[in-house]
Protein backbone atom coordinates (compact mmCIF):
# COMPACT_ATOMS: atom_id res chain seq x y z
CA UNK A 1 0.00 0.00 0.00
CA UNK A 2 1.02 3.58 -0.48
CA UNK A 3 1.20 4.08 3.21
CA UNK A 4 -0.88 6.88 4.58
CA UNK A 5 1.89 7.62 7.02
CA UNK A 6 3.80 9.66 4.46
CA UNK A 7 0.90 12.06 4.49
CA UNK A 8 0.56 12.13 8.26
CA UNK A 9 4.17 12.13 9.43
CA UNK A 10 7.56 13.50 8.55
CA UNK A 11 10.58 11.43 9.41
CA UNK A 12 14.09 12.47 10.12
CA UNK A 13 16.31 9.45 10.43
CA UNK A 14 19.95 8.37 10.55
CA UNK A 15 21.69 5.03 10.69
CA UNK A 16 25.23 4.09 11.58
CA UNK A 17 26.73 0.62 11.26
CA UNK A 18 30.16 0.12 12.80
CA UNK A 19 32.61 -2.80 12.83
CA UNK A 20 33.14 -2.54 16.58
CA UNK A 21 36.58 -3.21 18.04
CA UNK A 22 36.84 -7.00 17.89
CA UNK A 23 35.37 -8.11 14.58
CA UNK A 24 37.08 -8.32 11.22
CA UNK A 25 33.89 -8.00 9.15
CA UNK A 26 30.50 -6.35 9.54
CA UNK A 27 27.60 -8.82 9.48
CA UNK A 28 24.92 -6.24 10.28
CA UNK A 29 22.64 -4.71 7.66
CA UNK A 30 19.88 -2.10 7.70
CA UNK A 31 17.17 -0.53 5.59
CA UNK A 32 15.48 2.86 6.00
CA UNK A 33 12.60 4.11 3.89
CA UNK A 34 11.33 7.33 5.52
CA UNK A 35 8.93 7.88 2.61
CA UNK A 36 6.99 4.78 3.57
CA UNK A 37 7.89 4.75 7.26
CA UNK A 38 9.68 1.41 7.06
CA UNK A 39 12.86 0.79 9.08
CA UNK A 40 14.84 -2.39 9.66
CA UNK A 41 18.03 -3.70 11.30
CA UNK A 42 19.39 -7.23 10.79
CA UNK A 43 22.35 -8.96 12.44
CA UNK A 44 23.73 -11.94 10.51
CA UNK A 45 25.26 -15.08 11.89
CA UNK A 46 26.82 -18.26 10.58
CA UNK A 47 30.56 -17.73 10.54
CA UNK A 48 32.88 -16.97 7.62
CA UNK A 49 30.94 -14.67 5.29
CA UNK A 50 27.54 -16.39 5.70
CA UNK A 51 26.26 -13.92 8.28
CA UNK A 52 26.82 -11.02 5.93
CA UNK A 53 24.93 -12.79 3.13
CA UNK A 54 22.03 -13.56 5.47
CA UNK A 55 21.57 -10.08 6.94
CA UNK A 56 21.90 -8.45 3.52
CA UNK A 57 19.26 -10.79 2.11
CA UNK A 58 16.90 -9.86 4.95
CA UNK A 59 17.51 -6.11 4.56
CA UNK A 60 16.98 -6.23 0.79
CA UNK A 61 14.25 -8.82 0.34
CA UNK A 62 11.98 -8.43 3.36
CA UNK A 63 10.96 -4.77 2.80
CA UNK A 64 10.30 -5.51 -0.88
CA UNK A 65 8.14 -8.56 -0.12
CA UNK A 66 6.28 -6.73 2.63
CA UNK A 67 5.43 -3.68 0.54
CA UNK A 68 4.31 -5.89 -2.35
CA UNK A 69 2.01 -7.82 0.00
CA UNK A 70 0.54 -4.60 1.40
CA UNK A 71 0.17 -2.99 -2.04
CA UNK A 72 -2.50 -5.58 -2.76
CA UNK A 73 -4.41 -4.49 0.37
CA UNK A 74 -4.50 -0.69 0.44
CA UNK A 75 -7.08 -0.65 3.23
CA UNK A 76 -4.98 -2.80 5.54
CA UNK A 77 -5.57 -1.92 9.21
CA UNK A 78 -3.52 -2.86 12.31
CA UNK A 79 -4.35 -6.59 12.49
CA UNK A 80 -3.95 -6.98 8.72
CA UNK A 81 -0.56 -5.26 8.80
CA UNK A 82 0.50 -7.53 11.66
CA UNK A 83 -0.61 -10.57 9.70
CA UNK A 84 1.23 -9.38 6.58
CA UNK A 85 4.39 -8.82 8.62
CA UNK A 86 4.25 -12.27 10.21
CA UNK A 87 3.71 -13.90 6.84
CA UNK A 88 6.48 -11.91 5.11
CA UNK A 89 9.00 -12.73 7.88
CA UNK A 90 8.05 -16.44 7.89
CA UNK A 91 8.43 -16.55 4.09
CA UNK A 92 11.76 -14.73 4.26
CA UNK A 93 12.96 -17.23 6.88
CA UNK A 94 11.88 -20.23 4.78
CA UNK A 95 13.61 -18.77 1.73
CA UNK A 96 16.85 -18.18 3.64
CA UNK A 97 16.73 -21.70 5.09
CA UNK A 98 16.21 -23.18 1.63
CA UNK A 99 19.11 -21.16 0.24
CA UNK A 100 21.30 -22.41 3.05
CA UNK A 101 20.25 -26.03 2.29
CA UNK A 102 20.94 -25.66 -1.41
CA UNK A 103 24.35 -24.09 -1.07
CA UNK A 104 26.72 -25.90 1.31
CA UNK A 105 28.85 -22.77 1.60
CA UNK A 106 25.93 -21.01 3.27
CA UNK A 107 25.01 -23.83 5.64
CA UNK A 108 24.03 -22.58 9.07
CA UNK A 109 23.51 -18.97 8.03
CA UNK A 110 20.80 -16.93 9.68
CA UNK A 111 19.97 -13.43 10.80
CA UNK A 112 18.05 -11.51 13.38
CA UNK A 113 15.59 -8.87 12.26
CA UNK A 114 13.81 -5.97 13.94
CA UNK A 115 11.46 -3.97 11.78
CA UNK A 116 9.14 -1.02 12.30
CA UNK A 117 6.37 -0.09 9.88
CA UNK A 118 4.37 3.10 10.46
CA UNK A 119 0.80 3.18 9.19
CA UNK A 120 -2.16 5.41 10.01
CA UNK A 121 -1.79 6.56 13.62
CA UNK A 122 0.19 3.44 14.51
CA UNK A 123 3.52 1.68 14.17
CA UNK A 124 3.86 -2.10 14.02
CA UNK A 125 7.06 -3.61 15.34
CA UNK A 126 8.15 -7.16 14.47
CA UNK A 127 11.26 -9.03 15.47
CA UNK A 128 13.10 -12.33 15.55
CA UNK A 129 16.30 -12.74 17.54
CA UNK A 130 18.05 -10.27 19.83
CA UNK A 131 18.07 -7.08 17.78
CA UNK A 132 15.94 -4.58 19.63
CA UNK A 133 13.45 -1.75 19.19
CA UNK A 134 13.14 1.09 21.72
CA UNK A 135 10.65 3.92 21.88
CA UNK A 136 11.66 7.27 23.36
CA UNK A 137 8.47 8.92 24.54
CA UNK A 138 8.51 12.15 26.55
CA UNK A 139 12.08 11.49 27.63
CA UNK A 140 11.33 7.98 28.84
CA UNK A 141 12.87 4.94 27.11
CA UNK A 142 10.67 1.91 26.59
CA UNK A 143 11.99 -1.37 25.24
CA UNK A 144 9.52 -2.78 22.72
CA UNK A 145 11.05 -6.19 22.10
CA UNK A 146 12.00 -9.20 24.18
CA UNK A 147 15.24 -10.93 23.11
CA UNK A 148 14.71 -14.35 21.60
CA UNK A 149 17.57 -16.06 23.33
CA UNK A 150 17.85 -18.99 25.68
CA UNK A 151 18.63 -16.91 28.76
CA UNK A 152 15.42 -14.84 28.29
CA UNK A 153 13.41 -17.99 27.78
CA UNK A 154 14.79 -19.64 30.93
CA UNK A 155 14.10 -16.42 32.82
CA UNK A 156 10.49 -16.39 31.58
CA UNK A 157 10.11 -19.98 32.67
CA UNK A 158 11.56 -18.97 36.07
CA UNK A 159 14.35 -21.53 35.68
CA UNK A 160 16.99 -18.86 36.34
CA UNK A 161 17.07 -15.53 38.17
CA UNK A 162 17.57 -12.12 36.49
CA UNK A 163 21.10 -12.06 38.00
CA UNK A 164 21.91 -15.43 36.48
CA UNK A 165 20.41 -14.39 33.15
CA UNK A 166 22.80 -11.42 32.97
CA UNK A 167 25.81 -13.66 32.35
CA UNK A 168 24.15 -16.93 31.42
CA UNK A 169 25.85 -18.59 28.42
CA UNK A 170 22.38 -18.97 26.86
CA UNK A 171 22.20 -15.24 26.14
CA UNK A 172 24.28 -15.92 23.02
CA UNK A 173 22.04 -18.72 21.85
CA UNK A 174 19.15 -17.45 19.76
CA UNK A 175 15.89 -19.36 20.04
CA UNK A 176 14.30 -17.69 17.01
CA UNK A 177 15.90 -16.14 13.96
CA UNK A 178 15.40 -15.70 10.23
CA UNK A 179 16.47 -18.94 8.56
CA UNK A 180 15.61 -21.15 11.55
CA UNK A 181 14.89 -24.84 11.08
CA UNK A 182 11.21 -24.68 12.06
CA UNK A 183 8.57 -22.11 11.01
CA UNK A 184 9.67 -18.65 12.12
CA UNK A 185 7.01 -16.99 14.27
CA UNK A 186 7.89 -13.32 14.73
CA UNK A 187 6.72 -11.37 17.76
CA UNK A 188 4.59 -8.52 16.44
CA UNK A 189 2.99 -5.61 18.26
CA UNK A 190 1.25 -2.44 17.22
CA UNK A 191 1.32 0.81 19.18
CA UNK A 192 -0.23 4.21 18.68
CA UNK A 193 2.30 6.90 17.85
CA UNK A 194 0.67 10.29 18.14
CA UNK A 195 2.46 13.63 17.86
CA UNK A 196 6.24 13.41 17.79
CA UNK A 197 8.56 10.69 19.01
CA UNK A 198 11.77 8.77 18.51
CA UNK A 199 12.36 5.16 17.60
CA UNK A 200 15.67 3.29 17.99
CA UNK A 201 16.40 0.00 16.28
CA UNK A 202 19.72 -1.66 17.09
CA UNK A 203 21.79 -4.82 16.91
CA UNK A 204 23.10 -6.45 20.09
CA UNK A 205 26.46 -4.79 19.48
CA UNK A 206 24.78 -1.78 21.16
CA UNK A 207 22.42 -3.38 23.67
CA UNK A 208 25.02 -5.96 24.73
CA UNK A 209 27.49 -3.19 25.56
CA UNK A 210 25.32 -0.50 27.14
CA UNK A 211 22.58 -0.75 29.77
CA UNK A 212 19.20 0.71 28.82
CA UNK A 213 19.74 3.60 31.21
CA UNK A 214 22.86 4.72 29.32
CA UNK A 215 21.11 4.35 25.97
CA UNK A 216 18.32 6.60 27.28
CA UNK A 217 20.82 9.23 28.46
CA UNK A 218 22.53 9.31 25.06
CA UNK A 219 19.23 9.60 23.22
CA UNK A 220 18.24 12.50 25.48
CA UNK A 221 21.61 14.23 25.13
CA UNK A 222 21.57 14.11 21.31
CA UNK A 223 18.53 15.84 19.85
CA UNK A 224 19.23 15.05 16.19
CA UNK A 225 19.29 11.46 14.90
CA UNK A 226 22.76 11.65 13.38
CA UNK A 227 24.50 12.82 16.53
CA UNK A 228 22.47 10.27 18.53
CA UNK A 229 23.78 7.47 16.29
CA UNK A 230 27.34 8.73 16.62
CA UNK A 231 27.04 9.02 20.39
CA UNK A 232 25.58 5.53 20.77
CA UNK A 233 28.22 3.87 18.57
CA UNK A 234 31.06 5.72 20.27
CA UNK A 235 29.79 4.68 23.71
CA UNK A 236 29.40 1.03 22.66
CA UNK A 237 32.95 1.02 21.31
CA UNK A 238 34.21 2.65 24.47
CA UNK A 239 32.52 -0.11 26.47
CA UNK A 240 34.47 -2.73 24.53
CA UNK A 241 32.94 -2.89 21.03
CA UNK A 242 32.71 -6.69 21.24
CA UNK A 243 30.44 -7.00 18.21
CA UNK A 244 29.32 -5.08 15.14
CA UNK A 245 27.19 -2.11 16.20
CA UNK A 246 24.24 -0.89 14.15
CA UNK A 247 21.90 1.83 15.33
CA UNK A 248 19.00 3.38 13.45
CA UNK A 249 17.31 6.41 14.98
CA UNK A 250 14.08 7.68 13.42
CA UNK A 251 12.35 10.83 14.71
CA UNK A 252 8.85 11.58 13.59
CA UNK A 253 6.55 14.56 13.81
CA UNK A 254 3.15 15.36 12.32
CA UNK A 255 3.30 16.31 8.64
CA UNK A 256 3.78 20.01 8.19
CA UNK A 257 6.10 20.31 11.19
CA UNK A 258 9.79 19.58 11.28
CA UNK A 259 10.73 16.27 12.89
CA UNK A 260 11.64 16.53 16.57
Amino acid sequence: MRLSLSKKRRFSCACLSDLGRKRSGNEDAWHADPERGLFLVADGMGGQSCGEVASRAVAEELPKALLEALAARPEADGPAVEQALRAAIAACSASLRERSRQDPRLRGMGSTVVLALFHGPCATIAHLGDSRAYLMDKGRLQRLTRDHNLASLLLDLKKITPEEAADHPGRHRLTRHVGMETTAVADVRTLRCKGAGRLLLCSDGLSGMLPDQRIAELLRENPDPESACRGLVAAANKAGGEDNITVLVADWSPAGKAAA
Partner: peptide, 25 residues
Protein backbone atom coordinates in the same frame (compact mmCIF):
# COMPACT_ATOMS: atom_id res chain seq x y z
CA UNK B 1 37.28 -20.28 18.52
CA UNK B 2 33.83 -20.57 17.09
CA UNK B 3 32.77 -17.31 15.51
CA UNK B 4 29.25 -18.68 15.51
CA UNK B 5 29.18 -18.99 19.26
CA UNK B 6 30.51 -15.51 19.69
CA UNK B 7 28.11 -13.86 17.32
CA UNK B 8 25.02 -15.47 18.74
CA UNK B 9 24.47 -18.69 16.98
CA UNK B 10 21.24 -20.52 16.37
CA UNK B 11 23.33 -23.23 17.97
CA UNK B 12 22.66 -26.21 15.73
CA UNK B 13 19.73 -28.50 15.68
CA UNK B 14 17.49 -29.08 18.66
CA UNK B 15 16.08 -32.27 17.15
CA UNK B 16 18.41 -34.53 19.08
CA UNK B 17 19.15 -32.43 22.16
CA UNK B 18 18.00 -33.33 25.68
CA UNK B 19 16.65 -30.68 28.00
CA UNK B 20 19.60 -30.71 30.40
CA UNK B 21 22.03 -29.95 27.57
CA UNK B 22 19.98 -27.01 26.35
CA UNK B 23 19.64 -25.57 29.84
CA UNK B 24 23.35 -25.84 30.57
CA UNK B 25 25.74 -27.51 28.12
Amino acid sequence: MSGMTASGSGGGTLYFMPKEQLRDF
